[in-house]
Amino acid sequence: MSLNLYGSEFTSRFLIGSAQYPSPAILLDAIAASRAGIVTVSLRREAGKDGAGQQFWSLIKQSGARLLPNTAGCKTVKEAVNTAHMARELFATPWIKLEVIGEDDTLQPDVFALVEAARILCAEGFQVFPYTTDDLVVADKLLAAGCEVLMPWGAPIGSGRGLNNPFALRALRAHFPDTALIVDAGIGLPSQAAAAMELGYDAILLNTAVAKAGNPVAMASAFAQAIAAGRSAFHAGAIAPRDMACPSTPVPGSPFWHSGGGQ
């Protein structure tokens, strides 16, 4: 089944960021290799005056992916709301990835400002993708504010630490079975992306792990495979782990029953 975000369907469950690549050419190749249907773009700094960043954005549009503008770098409700307005005008989309950073060292969201900004933007008709923590109560408030998608962190932005708190992510999934949940931030390895998908998350958003890899294009492809594998595994129904060995060959009736192990 495809990924549904605010009524739009996507076959890929990979959302990729567009910052920090060695060159736009490599960025475009990485997007192609990721097969991502959605690319995030920041506009806080690039916007400049008179759309001075247009050229870079049109380049990303060439990938054919849908653009998800973000409010990266914003620290207050007002800044985030203004940036969202600018994004709607520049990209002609109601979509906004809402980031309100509350702490410089961990780049963790200011969840109070986030909920407030989400409330304002949802009321104005925006379709908000909030970058949040794995806190259940905050998640609930964001949904009440009108968000239909939640993007909890795996770990701090750019840290590459993977899923810092799988317990909380599992609880979030269990509490909101019908909400699109996207793990955003902190993923460093394809195996970590696969782990999040195995927990039942709907999609993965990442940037640094691909952009800063030795070979970004190869890493984008590796993540695409891992995300697809994790999703298949989730649907396939995993076995429950157990402490004792359990032979995979049916024992009764085995012709080697009496011959002992290893012969």
């Binding site: 736009p24 700094r45 690039e46 400049g48 005056k49 001075a52 960043g53 050229q55 870079f56």
Partner: peptide
Amino acid sequence: MIESTERSRASVRS
């Protein structure tokens, strides 16, 4: 390093 053709206006943030 900002993806922009703007040749003036050094920002406070930068």
